[in-house]
């Protein structure tokens, strides 16, 4: 008995505490998709001209990521709103970016002509970014603060007033 035993006891209890803490903390671990307050991943996306941008390139700007598809009606309805927002807020250090879900560049170009928008569009042909953001229904819009942290996630169609409110919030204006 004595000292050696006590040390063994303490070591065993500490090991159990550490492993147990690890196990229990894994219960609180949420799925890895970005949520409000988390930092967006720095993933590469293709531009219409074929060059590649990374989401991290937009750091320092307030960022709006709009996930859409050409078959989705609410997406189409909110496109003019986004264009208007882009026109008005561009000078105020805001970037509004559309991310298309897995369609051909041609389809995206035709779509932009059809709905008459010209803000930045990125292609996610392998659907990896959409997956990383855990997108379920389209449209889904992420509002990201200049520091890269997600401020809000809006699922479904955006109205002008909603968009303005979000933009004010993420720019702090």
């Amino acid at each position: 008995m004595g000292k050696r035993n006590k040390t063994t006891q303490i070591i065993i209890l500490v090991v159990i505490l550490v492993l147990g803490g690890f196990a229990v903390s894994s219960a609180f671990k949420k799925p890895e998709a970005p949520k409000e307050g988390s930092t967006i991943p720095d993933l590469p996306l293709q531009q219409l001209n074929g060059s590649v941008v990374k989401l991290g390139d937009y750091k320092g700007k307030a960022l709006v990521l709009n996930f859409w598809g050409s078959w989705c009606e609410p997406c189409e309805r909110e496109m003019p709103t986004l264009q208007k927002g882009s026109d008005e807020w561009k000078a105020k250090n805001v970037e509004i970016v559309g991310i298309n879900y897995g369609e051909d560049p041609l389809v995206v170009q035709n779509y932009m002509k059809k709905v008459n928008v010209h803000f930045t569009m990125l292609l996610d042909q392998k659907k990896k970014v959409t997956e990383a953001f855990g997108i379920r229904p389209l449209p889904t819009t992420f509002f990201v603060k200049p520091d890269g942290k997600v401020h809000a996630i809006h699922i479904g169609e955006l109205t002008q007033s909603q968009l303005d409110k979000y933009l004010q919030e993420i720019t702090g204006q």
């Binding site: 492993l19 147990g20 196990a23 229990v24 894994s26 219960a27 609180f28």
Partner: peptide
């Protein structure tokens, strides 16, 4: 958390 705590 409570179930995992029980297992631990």
């Amino acid at each position: 958390w409570w179930f995992i705590t029980l297992l631990v």
